[in-house]
Design a protein around this nucleic acid. Structure first.
Length: 603
RNA sequence: GCAUCCGUAGCUCAGCUGGAUAGAGCAUCUGGCUUCGAACCAGAGGGUCGGGGGUUCGAAUCCCUCCGGGUGCGCCA
């Protein structure tokens, strides 16, 4: 609907220019057409007169009056156009414009809300948990946000690749191998002690049992280096497989699992470092230039690890916005994590994406500047690299924060959270907030009020649509279908609430496009919330007077078309969020909600 | 100290990139089911949009500054 309004306004502006009323020296300005919040302001409001005021040298209201009197509306879209307030155009549309929404949804069907293919290739990298343990609650938000973002970008017409970068190389996986080897020997009666930094959690013991069952005791007698190699292989394999299982539970999939170790194995990392050296963007020093008198808080990790830092080859990332230069080769010439990460991102560029989005936690936000700078230093277009930084989540149970730490052994796995909260509820809660704000996940609330779980409100909205359509069948007035409903039947949709619903539904494509452009899946969620609230209000208000299913067969079909259009709209939006759109809610009995349920019914 | 994110109703959060009278859920209170699903709805109370400056027709939104909180500032990944 909005685009047709914009079209009329634009045509009118050009006509006024042709008649010399407006100069439009700077072309048609950026202006906004937005759904009116106040019904007294018509259906849509437009601010173009105000934005033109300065460049035209005229008062906003004067320009607005000119637009009204010179309106180019051949299709008779508007029934009323008024000037109001400081110079707003308040536009009221003909009923038929609302009914067109049903036609559009009917034509588009499953693809309603989705944009036509843009031909753009977009990469979304998300989850990327280390294969040194299971996915835990620290990864949860990024997992669901990344998945929803990938769905959203695909809906916006992009060709999306979902990628998981597995950090299966380096110090952490060595520690995993060491821990696992100890647990393996423990299974054969050896007594072991874990050192600081090794992984005390039970999942390592389980992997050790898998290893023993698979290989028997052969590694007890073999030399340690070979045993550790085998331990690493088994450990990564088992952890990765557990990660994949959890992702399936979370309803999340990836197209590509990219192994960091493969970069090293294929000899890709050192050439990247060599490239930087060849470009003259490096230097050898004991520490980064300009950091000699840098202040750091005494309790920071940097201060703690200071004596272990020997210097080496530095990359001049500070030339392009990084706080300081970063080391890429140690004194012994070996590459660091960043060197591999730069290589990985370089590989992404070589694969030819238009946008590359990394989703990661706030604790990695510091990487943003160095990665961008690193790409720029390779002569690549760093603006193609985007980041969605997901802020921290506090998980609260019984009023206190639940801390999870792989190192301390108390891992709170995502798998368990999903089991406890339900996958849709879980996903929903993480998607409800903007990614750049911290959030709290309160498990008490979820348990105590499972009946009022936010996701149910949404799913109930969809289920209610389905229920009405079922009821119509039972009443002997089955809906003829969105493609068969007649203009005469649609013409019965004249109630203000019906028009508001149609107007709202018409916005799905805009909402999806805007959410994709800003990488903000939560916008789609709030759109659904508003739509459903309007529907429930409409439904309840007219329950006694203007029911969907009535003796008036024509009106009944019109309203069923409204309900079916809504159902399709919600279903498509839910799919973009990745939550289920059920046709029926499974009833939760009061007794199931708490354990003291034998009082109410019996007495 | 520096970087970065956040601060909106008692609580948890939206606010469509600058628009008209700042919204929702939960919590509290009052109402609403013989008929399409009450997991719902209607209404009430509750706000110096952290404070102060600035930009302009117009600011919760943009800029500066201060206050408060999170995260990071590693040759771990």
């Amino acid at each position: 609907m909005k685009d047709s309004v914009v079209a009329v306004v634009t045509a009118t502006l050009n006509a006024l220019k042709g008649r010399g009323v407006l100069t439009l020296a700077a072309g048609v300005p950026a202006f906004v057409v937005e759904p009116a919040k106040n019904p007294a302001h018509g259906d849509f409001a437009c601010n173009v007169a105000m934005t033109l005021s300065k460049s035209e040298g005229k008062a906003p209201r004067q320009i607005a009056d000119a637009i009204v009197s010179g309106l180019v509306d051949e299709a008779r879209l508007f029934t009323k156009v008024e000037v109001a307030g400081p110079g707003f155009l308040n536009l009221t549309l003909a009923d038929s414009a609302f009914h067109q929404v049903v036609r559009r949804v009917a034509t588009a069907g499953e693809s309603w809300g989705r944009s036509p293919p843009t031909g753009k290739k977009v990469l979304v990298e998300f989850v990327s948990a280390n294969p040194t343990g299971p996915i835990h609650i620290g990864h949860a938000r990024g997992t669901f946000v990344g998945d929803a973002l990938a769905r959203l970008l695909s809906a916006a017409g992009h060709e999306v690749t979902r990628e998981f970068y597995a950090n299966d190389y380096g110090h952490q996986v060595d520690v995993l191998a060491r821990t696992l080897y100890k647990r393996y020997r423990e299974l054969f009666g050896e007594s072991i002690t874990l050192e600081e930094g090794e992984y005390p959690a039970d999942y390592v013991k389980e992997i050790a049992r898998v290893w023993r069952d698979e290989d028997g005791d052969v590694w007890l007698k073999s030399d340690e280096a070979a045993a550790l190699r085998r331990a690493q292989e088994i450990g990564i394999r088992e952890n990765l497989s557990a990660i994949r299982e959890t992702l399936i539970l979370a309803n999340v999939s990836h197209d590509v699992y990219f192994s960091e170790a493969s970069l090293h194995a294929n000899d890709k990392v050192m050439p990247t470092a060599a490239e930087y050296v060849a470009r003259g963007m490096t230097y050898v020093a004991d520490q980064a230039r300009g950091t000699e008198d840098k202040k750091r808080r005494k309790d920071s990790k940097a201060a703690h690890f200071e004596e272990q830092q020997e210097g080496g080859t530095w990359l001049m990332t500070s030339l392009h916005g990084d706080e300081e230069d970063r080391i890429i080769l140690r004194k012994d010439g070996s590459p660091v994590y960043l060197t591999a990460d730069l290589t990985y991102h370089r590989e992404k560029f070589l694969r030819g994406y238009d946008r590359m989005i990394d989703v990661f936690g706030a604790d990695h936000a510091g990487h943003l500047a160095r990665l961008k700078a690193g790409m720029t230093l390779l002569g690549l277009e760093a603006s193609k690299l985007e980041f969605v930084v997901v802020q921290m989540v506090r998980i609260v149970r019984a009023g206190v924060e639940v801390k999870a730490s792989k190192r301390k052994g108390n891992v709170f796995e995502l798998k368990d959270l999903i089991e406890e909260a339900g996958v849709d509820a879980c996903r929903f809660i993480f998607l409800m907030k903007t990614t750049n704000a911290q959030m709290e996940f309160n498990l008490d609330l979820l348990e105590r009020q499972s009946k009022e779980n936010p996701v149910f409100y949404f799913q109930y909205g969809h289920a209610r649509c389905a229920a009405v359509l079922r009821k119509a069948v039972a009443e002997g007035q089955p809906f003829v279908g969105l493609d068969a409903v007649s203009d005469e039947q649609l013409a019965t949709l004249v109630l203000p609430e019906e028009k508001l619903l149609l107007k709202k539904m018409s916005q799905l494509p805009e909402v999806v496009a805007a959410a994709a452009a800003t990488s903000e899946p939560h916008r789609v969620l709030y759109f659904c919330q508003e739509l459903i609230a309007e529907f429930h209000g409409y439904y309840t208000k007219y329950k006694r007077t203007e029911r969907v299913i009535s003796d008036d067969k024509i009106k009944t079909q019109g309203r069923l078309a409204l309900v079916a259009t809504l159902k399709q709209t919600l279903r498509n939006a839910f799919l973009i969020l990745g939550v289920d759109a059920p046709d029926a809610m499974s009833r939760v009995e009061a007794d199931d909600l708490d354990d003291d349920g034998d009082d109410a019914a019996g007495v």
